[in-house]
């Protein structure tokens, strides 16, 4: 194997990592806010709020992300109203289109994850908080949200990994992130296998770090599920 070429490839592809991360993080952060709103709409019990959220989730989950990206990047420019509006400087940029498409897409998936998490909050805990006289806002902030986040975290972790993988699609609308640079390099050198190995390893490392972070967060949020340290076990044995 040609290690000099692998090393050169690595040096060519690494500058794409910041863009990949930037796309993934902005989409995940914005998407989480939108997803929380959607999940609340679904759980509001009001038809007028429930149905739009349902339709949104259905539409975005059953069409390919690439189609959504094309609709936003190429499609919106078809309308004169869009081209003359104040949004055009953003919608003309492939970067903002990619962020928008990824955000809208992840919001649909994440809202279902959040909804599951919110539904999994035990009734008893909500009732206990109400009995203790908490206001609705305090109840949500102190009881519902922390428990829901804890329940939703494992599923949300895999959504994060899916998002990092999804940023690869931004390369199709000319953004030069890791996959974009890899495709360019393949076209220049015709050495697809070596480039694939390097680009694949970069994504594996990124996803490995994300999985570790999610695991660490999960561990932090579920202290009650950890095995007790031996010292406490011995002390508590009498109690």
């Amino acid at each position: 194997m040609d290690f000099a070429f692998l090393y050169d490839t690595l040096l060519t592809l690494l500058p794409g990592v910041p863009l990949t991360l930037k796309l993934a993080f902005s989409a995940v952060a914005l998407g989480a806010v939108l997803a929380l709103g959607l999940a609340m709409m679904r759980l509001s019990g009001l038809r007028a709020l429930d149905w739009p959220a349902r339709v949104y989730v259905f539409l975005f989950r059953s069409t390919p992300l690439l189609v959504q990206i094309f609709l936003i990047y190429y499609g919106l420019g078809q309308f004169r109203e869009v081209r003359t509006s104040w949004l055009w400087p953003f919608l003309r940029e492939p970067y903002w289109c990619a962020v928008l498409a990824l955000t809208l897409n992840t919001a649909a998936y994440a809202s279902e994850i959040f909804r599951g998490g919110l539904l999994a909050v035990p009734h008893g805990q909500v009732e206990a908080a109400r009995a203790a006289g908490m206001s609705r806002g305090l109840l949500f902030r102190r009881i519902v949200l922390p428990v829901a986040i804890r329940q939703a975290l494992p599923a949300y972790g895999s959504e994060l990994i899916l998002m990092i993988k999804a940023t690869a699609l931004a390369s199709i609308i000319t953004l030069m992130e890791v996959t974009g640079l890899a495709a360019k390099l393949i076209a220049e050198t015709y050495r697809a296998i070596e480039v694939f190995i390097v680009a694949g390893s970069i994504y594996l490392v990124l996803n490995f770090v994300v999985t570790r972070l999610v695991l660490a967060a999960e561990r932090r949020l579920t202290p009650h599920l950890r095995p007790a340290p031996v010292a406490i076990l011995n002390d508590g044995g009498a109690a």
């Binding site: 990994i161 993988k165 940023t167 699609l169 390369s171 994504y203």
Partner: peptide, 20 residues
């Protein structure tokens, strides 16, 4: 490995790599 890398890369691998 396959669940950790983007599908698009795998498609590039098969499309361009197959000729290699």
């Amino acid at each position: 490995v396959l669940r950790g890398i983007p599908d698009l890369l795998v498609i590039y691998l098969f499309y361009f790599g197959s000729s290699a």
